[in-house]
């Protein structure tokens, strides 16, 4: 039984087709990685799954646990279990991080038929999960991502993921802008959340992150299509030979 199922997905923005027929199946407990050069459509795929409205879906389907995601608002998708760790988390001055998170956590809990967390229960959870990614809890007294460093923003994303306990986690270039120590902390945070029920889609440009978050499958995205899929060794091959190698092979095969 698949967790996330993408079939023949086409998406465009302002009439330009970015995704040109994506097929992807992720089962519970699996970690898949999508690699690809800049402009191949990696971020678009993550945002289309999460429900950003700037993209027009022209063909295909995306389901989560059998439910049609494309028919849902972004907040409904989040409640169903989708989580997108943003490549560029948005700074929202004036909105308290704790207030925002408590609203989000309780919206998701209500959807799952759980009671709202009270202030004590919420803070206890915050403390526990912040420790997972070595996030300074005082950051959470600040407005959402406001004045956070690049590394703090990425850690805060993984922290939010831990708070919301999604079933399908999408990490959009979570490694970009991180030094090796921060990368390890973020990866540890992700690994702690791996479970037999949860799926991961790790989008990255570089193989480095995959040394820490070891994928079951690696897919190469090129010009809006998955052109190659394989095991984790595919990432190493890409690292060694570069994307031009695949580009040439695809061109030769076409």
């Amino acid at each position: 039984m698949s967790l996330l199922q993408i079939k023949n997905l086409h998406a465009s923005v302002e009439g330009i087709e970015i995704l040109k027929g994506i097929d992807l199946e992720i089962r519970p407990g699996e970690v898949h990685s999508i690699m690809g050069p800049n402009g191949s459509g990696k971020s678009t795929l993550s945002r289309v799954i999460a429900g950003e409205e700037t993209y027009e879906i022209t063909e295909g389907s995306v389901t989560l646990g059998g439910k049609d995601l494309l028919d849902m608002d972004p907040e409904e998708r989040a409640r169903e279990g989708i989580f997108l760790a943003f490549q560029y988390p948005v700074e929202i001055p004036g909105v308290s991080t704790k207030y925002f998170l408590r609203t989000a956590v309780n919206a998701i809990r209500a959807h799952r038929g759980l009671d709202e967390l009270d202030a004590y229960g919420f803070l206890k959870l915050v403390k526990e999960k912040a420790a997972w990614v070595e996030l300074d809890p005082s950051l959470l007294d600040r407005p959402v991502n406001d004045g956070f460093s690049g590394g703090e923003k990425k850690r805060a994303e993984i922290f939010q993921m831990a708070m919301l306990e999604p079933t399908m986690c999408i990490l959009d270039e979570t490694d970009s802008g991180l030094d090796i120590d921060a990368l390890r902390i973020v990866a540890d945070g992700v690994n702690q959340q791996r479970s037999s029920e949860r799926g991961f889609l790790v989008i990255t440009h570089y193989q480095r992150l995959l040394e820490y978050i070891v994928p079951d499958m690696v897919h190469v995205l090129l010009d809006g299509r998955i052109v190659r899929s394989g095991g984790k060794e595919l990432a190493l091959e890409l690292e060694e030979k570069g994307y031009s190698w695949i580009e040439q092979e695809v061109a030769a095969g076409a």
Binding site: A50, G51, E52, E53, T54, D73, P74, E75, R77, A78, R79, I82, F83, L84, F86, P89, V90, I92, P93, G94, V95, Y99, F100, L101, T103, A104, V105, A107, I108, H111, P143, V144, Q160, L164
Partner: peptide, 29 residues
């Protein structure tokens, strides 16, 4: 800001709440 709105909604915050939060944030400054 559509970016802020999407960010909040992608975390499960209902659209109406997200809009009110962003309006509040505008005042809070």
């Amino acid at each position: 800001d559509p970016g802020g709105l999407f960010y909040l909604r992608a975390r499960g915050v209902p659209e109406a709440t997200a809009r009110a939060l962003l309006a509040w944030a505008f005042a809070a400054e």
